[in-house]
Amino acid sequence: MSRAEESGTSAATAGPADPPAPAPLAGSAKPPAPAPPAGPAKSAAPATRLPSAGISPSTGAGSHPLWTFGLFRSELVTTFRRWRTIALLAVLAAVPILVGIAVKIETSGGSPADGGGGGGGPAFIAQITNNGLFLVFTSLAATLPFFLPMAIGVIAGDAIAGEANAGTLRYLLVAPAGRTRLLLTKYATTLAFCLVATLVVAASALAVGALLFPLGDLTTISGTRISFGEGLLRALLIALVVAASLIGVAALGLFISTLTNSGIAAMATTVGLLITVQILDQIPQLHAVQPYFFSHYWLSFADLMREPVYWDDLRRNLGLQALYAAVFGSAAWARFTAKDITA
């Protein structure tokens, strides 16, 4: 499959690529009233079944532009019905429960909690006992460095390689899903998973926080007070920023997924890279390159809890994620559209 072919047809998935039946014509050519043939070949009109070699206009695939999203829906349903996806989400939902219970036990034992917040959210963890909403911030801070990106790495790494491994990739491609369309669908689904995973952590934390601790007005990092309602709004905003922080990992994982036919290898590589980058980000000698690590500005989401909000690092984070998405997204596309599918 040449890149030229894909680039030519990717822009409009249903329209200009189907020359025998221009899109608008195809739409109107299909009368909505009578149910189209039920049996695949049996009931088709003989006129369209002539054994001619070419694709004649009468049998030209009439397709509706919206039908192209059927694959995305199917992909979402397939992904979220998998036992593995459910397990990943369950692990993520368990983190706030564990943190909440740990804080509860520690504070009821009398010793003040300090510094044990896993991912570096000590500023928040001390406040949990005063306000359950802080469990949301603490949990996101605790899961962002590892649990969340690891889950994304699994989903993104398996996206193409897993289908190749199972052999289902060749059937999707002869369906024909279209390589660009399939890749975009996979990326969109991975991003949807980023959002869902983050929201699961946030929702679980909110529930546990409300259950174990009091709720109410809260104090920002800058010392000002905001109402509980605004606090909730900020929590949602933070969840969205955390989800957006995973865009880079998702693109990286998808790229790695196009390199191999083994889902396990792709997942392991992605997660391995994730850990390596996190470690390198701690080494002072690498100061010059660290701003380009996808995880470098991750904890900037805490800046949303300042008054006024400190946007610089947040902006840098989102810019960096967009850069990763562009670079590794293009690499994945270049690789996948030129790849021989032999699995």
């Binding site: 249903a14 189209p36 829906r73 199917s74 899903a177």
Partner: peptide
């Protein structure tokens, strides 16, 4: 089969 059919952008979801 539903999944493979959904992969084909020319397949009518109504049928």
């Amino acid at each position: 089969l539903l999944r493979y059919d959904a992969a084909d952008p020319t397949a009518d979801p109504r049928t």
